[in-house]
Design a protein around this nucleic acid. Structure first.
Lengths: 131, 131
DNA sequence: GTTGCCTTTGACGTGCGCGTCAGGGTTTAG
DNA sequence: CTAAACCCTGACGCGCACGTCAAAGGCAAC
């Protein structure tokens, strides 16, 4: 399949696929004799994994960090258990868990910041209700 | 006082003051014979009001919307009651309360989005704790 | 006078995840 | 065979609130 079909199958656009490839989230795909990118189902599964991680709020950098282990997220697309097992000694065994931890911390900080901002704004506007 | 002093007095930078002026948040200040901007204490109070509103998460557009009523926020800098009284008929009497309401809604939506994102990410990472 | 910081306008840079356009070549349906 | 739809690379646009640089002039102290 060509880039348009692969993008549609993964729920995104050709431009995004070229962008992921350029940033190292996807391996360079096969090319036809005329130079057009050729994708197969394995590629589509990878693309979906990338999309899902980005959709979870990870950055391009984060995902590139464990791009080489992306298949751990996509084995038969049915991982019952956690795809990123934490090391028993407490250290980050994979760059994935480290990135996720960083993202979680960043999200918590941002939620906290916005919540305080909301409260201040509500208070300045004459005492808004909580929640 | 010149722009550097005014900016310092309001806790910001000359660049920011020129930017606010360009976007219509501040009125064009007086100029010296050589063309340099000249500010007084009234201007500094206005600048502080602008900074405070921006710090509360309002956008440049929002603040410009009620730039002409900015003095309502700065009367002696000690408003005991709400500076933006709501109209009794329920409609937005001032563009200020409308902008604040929009910002509150946007903040709530963003907090909600980030919270759901956090939960999904924690869940995907193997079941993070709530809170 | 002259040294050194301050100010002026204008224009580009920042981060992020792509969207969009330009100017070509390729594939496919009729 | 032709037209339409696709693909290629490269480059700029976006939104936001300024930061930063550049070239030129102003101001106060010594």
């Amino acid at each position: 399949m060509r880039i348009g079909d692969a993008a549609a199958a993964a729920g995104t656009t050709p431009r995004a696929l070229r962008f992921y490839e350029e940033r190292g989230l996807l391996p360079p795909p096969a090319r036809s004799t005329s130079g057009q990118r050729v994708y197969d189902l394995t590629d589509v599964i990878r693309i979906r994994a990338v999309r899902e991680l980005l959709g979870l709020g990870l950055t391009i950098e984060d995902v590139r960090g464990f791009a080489s282990r992306l298949d751990l997220f996509t084995e038969t697309a049915k991982p019952r258990c956690s795809p990123a097992p934490a090391a028993p000694d407490g250290s980050a065994a994979s760059p994935a868990s480290a990135a996720v931890a960083r993202r979680l911390a960043a999200l918590d900080a941002e939620i906290d910041r916005l919540t305080r901002l909301r409260d201040r704004l509500a208070h300045a506007a004459g005492g808004g209700s909580a929640q």
